[in-house]
Amino acid sequence: MFVVLQKLRYFVAGRTALMHVTTMNLKEETVATLKRFDIGEKFSYLPVLPKASVLIPLFVRGGQLHTLLTLRSKELRTGAGEVCFPGGKRDPSDRDDVDTALREAQEEIGLPPDQVEVVCTLFPVFSKRGLLVSPVVGFIEETFTPTPNPSEVSAVFAVPLDFFTREKDHYVTHGVAGMTGPLHSFYFRDPSSGNQYHIFGLTAMLATLVAVLALKKKPQFDVGFDLLDPLAFFKKILHKRLSKL
């Protein structure tokens, strides 16, 4: 009996060590992949515009990349009850886009800035409210437990990144006023709570974009941008919007 227990302990320890190595390898590979899309100073020439940032938090669970999303409080004046990434408007005290994203994530879901490994800042995009939004991608620990600020967030949930590349539960609308290209929409049922969430608009587009870049995987649907050169596409859209200001 003792020998059997010892073998079982070795098996569990070995499996745990293997999962840790797999997690580290996946994380390191993803970080290296996403860093290639960091914009750096490529958009420093842009005029001064109302700015905002969102944090796209990634983590590895069960050998898969996941991201965290929030459900905005129904008491908010704008975007009430919508699904989004943690984020918000630039504050005068923020040093840059990364600072904004980290501050907002701490205020909304209790994520300490020093627990985020910032990977990159992706191409800025315009929101429906005319804000220039910078997506900041960072890794967090799987063990992080959100503490939502009830005045801003009513729920926090995790979604496998691969979900945003699958046709199942994906819907698309074309010809939406003010939108260039398809408007993506997903319906996700959270297995831990049983709640269903509607992910659409800018949030759906950013989630799809990060999934495509991080997983290096072609989605089962038309994303509406060049998979080989997404920067050129988003730069074109950005300049088109700027020309109308």
Rank of each mutant, 00 (worst) to 15 (best):
D38E: 11
R77Q: 11
M1T: 13
F221R: 01
K35S: 11
V3T: 11
L206M: 10
S243L: 01
N25Y: 15
L242K: 10
P112S: 08
T145R: 14
Q106P: 10
V156I: 06
E167Y: 05
G87N: 03
Y10R: 15
L68E: 04
M24V: 14
S53P: 12
M179N: 13
S127T: 15
A13M: 03
T180A: 10
S151E: 09
L231Q: 15
A214F: 01
F123E: 13
F157D: 01
K218A: 14
T23D: 11
L122W: 11
F59Q: 00
H66C: 12
T22L: 14
F2T: 11
K244P: 04
H198P: 10
G14T: 09
A158S: 14
L242F: 06
P230T: 08
G63S: 11
L5D: 13
G79L: 10
K7W: 13
S44C: 08
D91E: 08
D91Y: 08
L238D: 02
A155E: 10
E142L: 00
K235N: 15
A158D: 07
V133E: 02
G87P: 04
F157C: 01
K51L: 12
F188I: 01
V118C: 05
A211F: 01
D229H: 13
Q220N: 14
F157Q: 01
L206P: 00
T180H: 12
A32F: 13
G14W: 15
S151L: 07
V83Q: 01
S193K: 09
E104D: 10
Q106R: 12
V156N: 00
L132G: 00
F186Y: 13
I199K: 00
Q196S: 06
L213W: 06
T67A: 04
L102G: 02
V31M: 04
K168N: 08
T100H: 03
P57S: 07
G178Y: 07
A80Q: 09
P135C: 08
V176C: 04
V223A: 10
I109V: 08
V159E: 03
L58A: 03
F233N: 12
Y45C: 11
E29V: 07
F37H: 15
R36H: 14
T67I: 05
N149F: 05
G178S: 03
G88V: 12
P146T: 03
P50D: 11
E152D: 01
K51N: 15
V133P: 02
M205K: 03
R9G: 07
L131E: 06
V116K: 00
G40V: 10
V21R: 14
K235D: 15
H66A: 02
S192Y: 11
Q220R: 13
G81R: 05
S53R: 04
L5V: 11
S93N: 00
K216Q: 15
M1S: 14
P92F: 11
D222S: 14
V223C: 05
F43E: 14
D226V: 04
A13W: 02
F233G: 02
L132Q: 03
V223R: 00
A214V: 01
K128W: 09
V3C: 06
